[in-house]
Amino acid sequence: QIFVKTLMGKTITLEVELSDTIDNVKAKIQDKEGIPPDQQRLIFAGKQLEDGRTLSDYNIQKESTLHLVL
């Protein structure tokens, strides 16, 4: 699992595989929060994550926290 922190300070827990693409992750956030993926920007280690890449491409591990910017 990974964590996604919103600017409102809310933390969302997502069940993911490290082979999941950023697209997949955004879809899971949409399922939980109702935010359309095209409005989501995910940040990790100061970098904006690109849709076609996977979590492992960015060296994101289990229990990592991503930041969601709208």
Rank of each mutant, 00 (worst) to 15 (best):
Gln1Gly: 03
Gln1Ile: 14
Gln1Thr: 13
Ile2His: 00
Ile2Met: 08
Phe3Lys: 07
Val4Arg: 00
Lys5Asn: 14
Lys5Asp: 15
Lys5Cys: 14
Lys5Met: 13
Lys5Trp: 11
Lys5Ser: 13
Thr6Glu: 09
Leu7Pro: 15
Leu7Ala: 15
Leu7Gln: 15
Leu7Phe: 11
Met8Lys: 09
Met8Ile: 11
Met8Ala: 12
Met8Arg: 12
Met8His: 13
Gly9Val: 01
Gly9Leu: 06
Lys10Cys: 05
Lys10Thr: 05
Lys10Pro: 05
Thr11Glu: 10
Thr11Pro: 11
Ile12Lys: 05
Ile12Cys: 04
Ile12Arg: 05
Leu14Ser: 01
Leu14Glu: 00
Leu14Trp: 00
Glu15Cys: 06
Glu15Ile: 04
Glu15Phe: 04
Glu15Tyr: 03
Val16Thr: 06
Val16Asn: 03
Val16Pro: 07
Glu17Ala: 07
Asp20Leu: 08
Asp20Arg: 11
Asp20Pro: 00
Asp20Phe: 12
Asp20Ala: 11
Thr21Phe: 07
Thr21His: 08
Asp23His: 02
Asp23Gly: 08
Asp23Thr: 07
Asp23Ala: 03
Asn24Trp: 03
Asn24Lys: 03
Asn24Arg: 08
Val25Thr: 11
Val25Gln: 01
Lys26Ile: 12
Lys26Ser: 08
Lys26Ala: 07
Lys26Thr: 12
Ala27Gln: 03
Ala27Leu: 03
Ala27Asp: 11
Ala27Thr: 05
Lys28Met: 10
Gln30Arg: 04
Asp31Tyr: 03
Asp31Ala: 07
Lys32Met: 10
Glu33His: 01
Glu33Pro: 01
Glu33Tyr: 01
Gly34His: 11
Gly34Leu: 05
Gly34Ser: 04
Gly34Pro: 02
Gly34Ile: 04
Gly34Tyr: 03
Ile35Phe: 13
Ile35Arg: 05
Ile35Leu: 08
Pro37Asp: 13
Pro37Gly: 11
Pro37Val: 11
Pro37Trp: 10
Asp38Met: 04
Asp38Glu: 01
Asp38Val: 04
Asp38Gly: 07
Asp38Leu: 04
Gln39Asn: 02
Gln39Gly: 07
Gln40Ile: 03
Gln40Tyr: 02
Arg41Leu: 14
Leu42Met: 13
Leu42Asn: 00
Leu42Ala: 00
Leu42Glu: 01
Ile43Cys: 13
Ile43Asn: 15
Ile43His: 14
Ile43Glu: 15
Phe44Trp: 02
Ala45Lys: 05
Ala45Glu: 15
Gly46Phe: 06
Lys47Asn: 15
Lys47His: 14
Lys47Thr: 15
Gln48Gly: 11
Gln48Arg: 04
Leu49Phe: 02
Glu50Phe: 06
Glu50Thr: 09
Glu50Lys: 15
Asp51Arg: 08
Asp51Thr: 03
Gly52Asp: 04
Gly52Trp: 01
Arg53Ser: 08
Arg53Glu: 12
Thr54Val: 06
Thr54Asn: 09
Leu55Arg: 00
Leu55Pro: 01
Ser56Glu: 12
Asp57Asn: 11
Tyr58Leu: 13
Tyr58Val: 13
Tyr58Gly: 07
Asn59Trp: 09
Ile60Ala: 05
Ile60Asp: 05
Gln61Leu: 06
Lys62Pro: 12
Lys62Ile: 08
Lys62Met: 02
Lys62Thr: 13
Glu63Met: 02
Glu63Ile: 02
Glu63Gln: 08
Glu63Val: 05
Thr65Gly: 13
Thr65Tyr: 07
Thr65His: 11
Thr65Trp: 13
Thr65Glu: 15
His67Asn: 15
His67Ala: 11
His67Tyr: 01
His67Pro: 15
His67Ser: 09
His67Val: 14
Leu68Met: 05
Val69Tyr: 09
Val69Gly: 13
Val69Ala: 12
Val69Cys: 09
